[in-house]
């Protein structure tokens, strides 16, 4: 038993009279009422009679209550949404914490300007960056830094803020050596020291005394071998400092 279009329209009219506003519910109730009516009519009840008994079930108030209940349930946050918003909150917190942690570790190696001061206050002369005859090995070699001839024990200074990333005490090569990481781009190296005042991991400020001039390693006289390393490549330190002109 299926309702005619006009019978369906009549039931739709009844629902409209109840003043429902939420369309998905109205549409569904129409099907519900029509289905119930059809069942009654299959039992042999006439359409008007069926409608009469059913309208008892679908009082205007009840429909309104149902609509209100539906909408309030839909507006209340679902468990899933609660979990989702909790998760979002966690992610935001985590991101914040990570950002904060990154920032505070950046504080450990603060972004600085490149090593910009002389690594030594007093010196006699310099030997420049570039190809030269090696004083010990007596062959032409690339000199990857500047040598500062100075008295034994002259203070050696950190040329910019940074973190000590390497301290080496060997008898060959650069001898007693310090490497400072200034930021993600620049490092500086100090070789042939007689004394090292810092240790790996230590944070230093520009101008801090980190060691003393010596002749440790492959050196013929007390001097400071100073290098600037830019993105892992040794560059001419003269580009960063102004040497005293004699």
């Amino acid at each position: 038993m299926e309702l005619t279009e006009s019978q369906t329209a009549l039931i739709a009219e009844k629902i409209n009279e109840a003043g429902l506003k939420y369309y998905p519910l109205k549409e569904e109730l129409l099907d519900h009422l029509c289905s119930a009516t059809e069942e009654k009519m299959t039992e042999g009840v006439s359409f008007p009679e069926a409608l009469e008994t059913l309208s008892e079930l679908f009082k205007e108030d009840e429909m309104k209550v149902m609509e209100k209940e539906t909408l309030s349930l839909l507006n209340s946050k679902s468990e899933f949404m609660k979990k989702l918003s909790l998760l979002t909150l966690l992610v935001v917190l985590l991101t914040f914490t990570v950002t904060w942690a990154t920032k505070s570790s950046e504080k450990a190696i603060p972004p600085t300007d490149p090593p910009s001061i002389l690594p030594i206050a007093e010196y006699f002369s310099t030997s420049p960056f570039g190809k030269r005859m090696h004083p010990v090995h007596k062959v032409e070699r690339m000199h990857t830094g500047i040598d500062f001839r100075a008295s034994m024990g002259t203070p050696v200074l950190a040329t910019s803020d940074g973190k000590i990333v390497k301290v080496q005490r060997i008898r060959t090569g650069y001898g007693n050596k310090i490497v400072i990481e200034h930021d993600s781009i620049y490092k500086s190296l100090y070789g042939h020291l007689s004394q090292v005042n810092v240790e790996v991991g230590q944070i230093v400020k520009k101008g801090d005394i980190i060691g003393e001039v010596g002749s440790s390693g492959a050196a013929t006289a007390p001097h400071l071998h100073y290098e600037v390393i830019e993105n892992g490549r040794k560059v001419n330190p003269e580009g960063f400092i102004s040497l005293r002109t004699e």
Partner: peptide
């Protein structure tokens, strides 16, 4: 119906 439909929508 008043119990069923709100639950279904939810």
């Amino acid at each position: 119906e008043g119990a069923l439909y709100p639950t279904l929508h939810k």
